[in-house]
Design a binder for these strands. Structure first.
Lengths: 131, 131
DNA sequence: TATGCTGTACTAGGTACATAATACAGAGGA
DNA sequence: TCCTCTGTATTATGTACCTAGTACAGCATA
């Protein structure tokens, strides 16, 4: 469970937390019934304000992914794993699709796009291997 | 020159305008020496506030892409085409790279990613063909 | 010269997001 | 019981972005 926040990703901080918690559940880094990191702990770790984490958790609670247990913490709800996996697919796809759409509209050809994709993917794999 | 604004793209409206003007110049939809659409005209077309367009143009002026000619309009500067092409590559690459990074971190395998990419690209091509 | 376009500047108001500092209620362990 | 953890609520402040309305200076053209 170590999240990473990009200060000016376009996405709001609380939104980045929401996404990453969902992804952590999707990949079973966080399992059903387990406790999510506490508001204050996560805020300290990311050096952001506890209110911002609380806001993210509030949304995850609204989306039936986390459950608040007063005095104990936020518990990952039953059946959340499956739901998060589906959402992960959608979120990733949306982002990729939107990037490709912009690229096409800007006049980049599909073949250039394919080349760019391969290059970026290889660069990523190399980085992961060295890490 | 018809731009399209996505209200809550994450990106600020003025930023979307900046990107799309750059892309239009990169693809010679807008050529060096030509006039960019006027602040009021573009604002009317996009149904946004003229101040927002002005802000975008201010930034493009700062980046030496547009040149203000008082009473006449914003002229595309000489050598802007090449500069915009380079920037287009960078911007597109950054966005694609960032999407792929998130996908990998979220536990999606590279082969899944490749499949997803192909699917989205084909969908895009089909949409473009029918349009 | 007069009209209508251009960019530019300014003030004001509203919303979203994040921070800061408290305060309170419930759970659990010493 | 007391202490410390948990989530939750509240108020205030600041910044970024967008909207609204108004005003002004310069260019072009009728």
């Amino acid at each position: 469970m170590h999240l990473h926040i990009e200060p000016s990703n376009g996405l709001a901080i609380y939104d980045q937390i929401v996404r990453q918690i969902k992804f952590a559940i999707a990949s079973t880094t966080l399992r059903e019934g387990e406790l999510a990191p506490s508001v204050r702990e996560l805020a300290r770790e990311l050096t952001i304000n506890p209110n911002t984490v609380a806001r993210a958790y509030q949304q995850l609670q609204f989306e039936e992914i986390l459950e608040s247990v007063r005095g104990t913490g936020m518990v990952v709800k039953k059946a959340a794993t499956g739901r998060c996996r589906k959402e992960r697919s959608v979120l990733i796809q949306e982002r990729l699709s939107s990037a490709l759409l912009e690229a096409r509209k800007s006049g980049i050809s599909t073949s250039e796009l394919r080349t760019l994709f391969d290059k970026e993917l290889k660069r990523l794999e190399k980085e992961e291997a060295s890490a």
